[in-house]
């Protein structure tokens, strides 16, 4: 069970990362929710009796992923580790509703993902943010436009889109929001990817090997930024990675194999 860190500690770290004086941070409306928001106890993600199976070439039994129970509260974070091929990405895709399990339930911010009445595309746009290993930014689009594309599928009013995107990019240190993403450095692209994951005010951010393309120093900066901004936005963060350097940074670390009822890959 995660115990949320005190708000002032998180703010201090955000301040260091953004290299802005405390006074400026105090006045910035972007950080206002952090000062007032109580730690949420509502569930961002709840999984029960999940079973996913698909046949694989050369394997008689195929691939199977089974999870008895997994919960992640709003504003909390979890690092999910496991060996390569162990099903970490499959797990994320199930949570995103991109794969459909044979059994079990996934509840996202109180909404049953695989209920017949649920529009998974709409739910994904409104409740989930993604950070990928290779960023997967839209080429030919500016940093701001990458955020605006994400906002197209959100429930936020259109009138707020630009201001929301610009504020978030500025908070993440992107000074040229109108620069095309391919013109940005790798570090800047990573920050745009983080901003895109958070721009729709999601309940849960899924990060799939977010540091795998970065050197250790940038990896640390990136994961710190991701954690801090998830906290500021009040989003739960679920990171899957096989990078051992991330383990000390997370209070809650789960082994995928430990979550499964019968072991992961048979």
């Amino acid at each position: 069970m995660i115990t949320p860190e005190p708000a002032n500690d998180s703010l201090a770290r955000a301040q260091i990362i953004s290299k802005r004086p405390r006074a400026a941070v105090d006045k910035d409306p972007y950080y206002a929710p952090l000062m007032s928001r109580p730690a949420s106890t509502s569930s961002a993600l709840s999984i029960r009796a999940l079973s996913f199976h698909y046949p694989t070439r050369g394997s008689e039994n195929g691939f199977h992923l089974g999870i008895e129970a997994f919960d992640l509260a709003r504003g909390s974070e979890c690092l999910l580790v496991g060996r390569s091929g162990g099903g970490k990405s499959t797990f994320l895709q199930l949570v995103a509703g991109l794969l459909e399990p044979q059994h079990g339930s996934i509840t996202l911010d109180g909404v049953e993902l695989f209920a017949r009445t649920t529009n998974r595309d709409l739910l994904r746009g409104a409740k989930l943010g993604f950070v990928f290993q290779t960023f997967n930014l839209l080429q030919g689009f500016s940093a701001l436009e990458n955020l605006l594309v994400a906002l197209m599928f959100s429930t936020l009013p259109k009138a707020e889109w630009s201001a929301r995107g610009e504020t978030l990019l500025a908070a993440l240190g992107i000074e040229q929001p109108n620069a095309r993403v391919e013109e940005l450095s790798v570090g800047q692209q990573q920050r745009v990817a983080i901003a895109r994951a958070l721009v729709c005010k999601p309940a849960l951010v899924l990060a799939d090997e977010p540091t795998a393309s970065l050197d250790p120093e940038n990896a640390k900066i990136a994961i710190t930024l991701l954690r801090e901004h998830c906290r500021i936005e009040g989003a739960a963060l679920l990171v899957v990675s096989h990078d051992p350097s991330l383990v000390p940074m997370f209070a809650r670390v789960e082994q995928l194999s430990a979550l499964t009822a019968e072991g992961v890959a048979r």
Partner: peptide, 16 residues
């Protein structure tokens, strides 16, 4: 296809 996959992840439906 990657761009389309990103759009899908962001919330675009198959029909869209």
């Amino acid at each position: 296809r990657r761009q389309i996959a990103v759009l899908r992840v962001l919330g675009a439906s198959r029909a869209r």
